[in-house]
Design a protein around this nucleic acid. Sequence first.
DNA 1: AAAGCAACTTCAGGAAAGTTGAAGAATGGC
DNA 2: GCCATTCTTCAACTTTCCTGAAGTTGCTTT
Lengths: 294, 294
Amino acid sequence: MALKIEMLRAFCTVAQTGNLSEAANRLGRTQSAVSMTLKQMEDHLGKRLFEGERKNQLSPLGEQVFELAQKQVRRFDQTVQSIELAAEAAHGLLQIVSVPSVAALVFPPVLEHMTARHPGLKVELRDTDTQEVLDALAEGKADIGIASGYHPLNGVRAVPLFADRFGLVCATDHPLHRQETAPTIADVISSSFVRNALCGLIRNERFVEASSNADVTIHNTHSLITMVRTGKWVTVLPQTVARFMPEATAFRPIADLPDKREVYLYQRERSRFAALAEECCAFIQSCDLSGDPG
Amino acid sequence: MALKIEMLRAFCTVAQTGNLSEAANRLGRTQSAVSMTLKQMEDHLGKRLFEGERKNQLSPLGEQVFELAQKQVRRFDQTVQSIELAAEAAHGLLQIVSVPSVAALVFPPVLEHMTARHPGLKVELRDTDTQEVLDALAEGKADIGIASGYHPLNGVRAVPLFADRFGLVCATDHPLHRQETAPTIADVISSSFVRNALCGLIRNERFVEASSNADVTIHNTHSLITMVRTGKWVTVLPQTVARFMPEATAFRPIADLPDKREVYLYQRERSRFAALAEECCAFIQSCDLSGDPG
DNA sequence: AAAGCAACTTCAGGAAAGTTGAAGAATGGC
DNA sequence: GCCATTCTTCAACTTTCCTGAAGTTGCTTT
């Protein structure tokens, strides 16, 4: 039998839980059903997906399949959700996807503005990384996207939204915040520097080189803030992101790092409720988002 | 009943063919099976997907669902193919995705080099647009990718491969080729200019503005070449792409358009046959790809 | 207007796939 | 060596899916 979504889903669940009964539980099936599904899958592929007698160790092939399957399952579920959402929304639907840092800034006013003006309008807001924002636009899962950098995409209009200077983020009592002269790249890197996902956007050669052997990289913003608040660690972020940092942290430009993060607003050209998307984009552009009007 | 892949597939086929019997035929089902599947889907969503009595006109919702569903089905089939390929490949598997223009340049030597050195190695080569190259890398469907521009991606290493100047492509007997002085942006745009997908990579403000109201855009390279060969139309392409143009066409730098297309080599950091990917990347980098060593 | 036609829907029965609980086999901790 | 845990296998059962035949619907022919 051919591979099916439910087969992939079962496999992923087992791979994650590491045992059949727990997986069966999560899937709402019996253990034996899951066992048989898995056997079908292995038979079909002609190779084992697990090593050893139990299901707690993936084979190399299993690892690879797991990665593929998991992405596929997630994507499928998301598509289903999108389709169902689209079907429910009779009076209009606006799907907006953004990188988290801008989402926090944009979603509240957008939501207020659009729902007030359009009773019955359904709005879906989602935040993920730039890559997925672009995916969502390309696949028709989003009408409007906000992401870092310029990425030409068929059928999607891109306009610059704002630019945002990178700078040091550290605790207010950190030496680099207290010192009089603006810190340099060397200063920052030689402190206990934590890389983060947004650092990847900096093309500045000296920074790239200096930060390439940073020991710690944190992707989750919340954890990042926690680290910085201890006063022991510092990081580099765009200024608007730093706006959402708590009291005891501060943002400071870095003397020899003039780089900015360029944030673009993406808009699908063909969408079911084009007028709504148009209105929403106009509103987003009318907001003053830049924390750094220079 | 919940939405299933086979349901989406049936819907897409009907949407494409515009009638049930032809769709049933392609799906290897009877007409009535397809009819029932479609009914299930409409019942589930609570809305009609087609308008009128026949299945040849999608409703607005249908249009939207079609777009989502088709992408999902394609993606699913591709994932299945990847999984099956991975299972078959016992002695190594190398999945390489590239934008078409570089694919033509890179695939032949890579294939020769790698298969000669590794008997039993399976190689998968695919060409698509930059967006899908990045998707494939992000989803684990490719070990190595070649795409235009720099796009930071988690777990994927990016190194510049070569840069490639944009220039005029026209028939050899076109006035812009014959004239002594190098053509300018204004010259090119005021000729019968055909935009193409790669033009989107040019950030030069004057070019962007000038080309924004071009009447014709062609995405397919073959059609593009045909147009240029007539001698009536001209286009703008990177030099290496122009290398594959037939005899009667020529490439010429544009005086006030110094822009280059930057091509990057992407490499997944974790993959089942990491050593192979490593070797392959090294080989690709050792090739002299730039047609323009300046 | 009756017959013909093409596209689609509905229906009942049967085939295929998926599910279950119980019984059996393998493994590892104690 | 025994027991608990985990997984596989089996036969019966349920659900889902598919088919072929009959029934609608609306348009075209004569």
